[in-house]
Amino acid sequence: MLSTISGDNIPTCGEPFLFFPLEGRNKVKRNLLKNLATLAIAGVLAAAPAWADSFKRTHEGETYKDFTLSTLEGEAKALSENLGSEGTILAFFATWNSRSEEVLSDIQKLHEKYGAKGLSVIGVNVEHAEWSPEEEPLIRKAISDAGVTFPVLVDKDFTVYNDYGVIAVPSIALIDGSGKILRLTTGYSSTGKYEFKDSVESVMGVEKKPVVAETKGYHPDTMALRNGKMAERFFDKRMYARAEKYALKAIEIDENYVDPYRLLAKIYKEAGMNDDAMAASKAADDIERALKANEQGIEKQPAEKPDDKNDGGGTSTKPEKIEKPHA
């Protein structure tokens, strides 16, 4: 059974875009996007905070830097004594930053899901460079609001903050079971948060199961699926330029993957570009039709019939000739 479709395996019914090769699709995409070099729709697009690969004084691949800080109750905890057997999340946050609440909530969910499986989660509050007793109730409220049950330490004089070279809050470090830093995320943007979660799941040995396409016999490329999911997430957040970027990336990886085409149709419809939306939708319909036709051709083999030229009474199973598609 074929996993991808190309060339002579594709049926045609004479329509110009029944199933077009990659170069043809690129031409269609260029036509669709000729007025969308930058999809800037006033009042709709939202810019996400910057995402960075590293802190100022800490880099991925390095061994973690040990430290000892205390909780609000005064209990001292060393990082080295609280590492998880599979991985450790080290999250720097401050109550005055709105995204810190989201970080605490998200990593609490990871703590609940993987804490018993070897993942350690540690929060480090970096409220201000000079500690004030008035900050304690604010920190306690943030911990309570997020339902935090993992240890939260307080870096009262920014010693650890400066040692790690944290450049903004919230910032998160993911440490693997051997003590090496796998990922550093600064700002916790929409892209960064999902990539960080994927990294955590990878450390915990979670295997991503590819989504099986509706059409039997065809499975979208795993990376195409990932980009497609990112596109959907950005679309849900009304971040259409980013959604378009990831949808096109998914198509570039796997041109037979229908969902990104349908998402592009939605994006262009939201932008008021009805002709482009219709073109993207038609491309999706045509590709899906060809995939289904190909699958039916695979499952339903031509019936054997006597071969008049075979004196021995044998049979011929040669299928009828399939025309090539129109580019």
Rank of each mutant, 00 (worst) to 15 (best):
T12I: 06
C13N: 14
G14V: 03
N26Q: 15
V28P: 00
K34N: 10
N35L: 05
A42F: 12
G43C: 11
A48P: 13
A50Q: 14
D53Y: 09
F55Q: 15
T58F: 07
E60A: 04
G61E: 15
E62K: 12
D66L: 06
T71D: 06
E73I: 00
A76H: 13
L79W: 02
S80E: 15
N82A: 00
G87Q: 14
T88M: 14
T88V: 07
W96A: 03
N97D: 07
L104D: 15
S105K: 14
S105W: 13
G115M: 08
V121K: 13
V121S: 04
N125H: 12
P133Y: 11
P137I: 06
P137K: 12
K141A: 04
S144T: 10
S144F: 02
S144M: 05
A146V: 01
V148A: 00
P151V: 04
D157N: 11
F158N: 08
Y164M: 05
G165D: 15
A168K: 07
V169T: 10
I181D: 01
T185W: 00
T191W: 11
G192A: 12
G192Q: 15
V203N: 11
M204H: 12
K209N: 07
V211I: 14
T215G: 02
P220S: 01
D221V: 02
G228Q: 01
M230E: 10
E232A: 09
K245Q: 09
K249Q: 12
D254G: 05
Y257D: 13
D259W: 05
R262F: 00
L263N: 01
L264M: 07
K266R: 10
K269N: 05
G272P: 04
A280H: 01
I287V: 10
A290I: 01
E299P: 03
E304Q: 11
K305Y: 11
D311F: 05
E320Q: 09
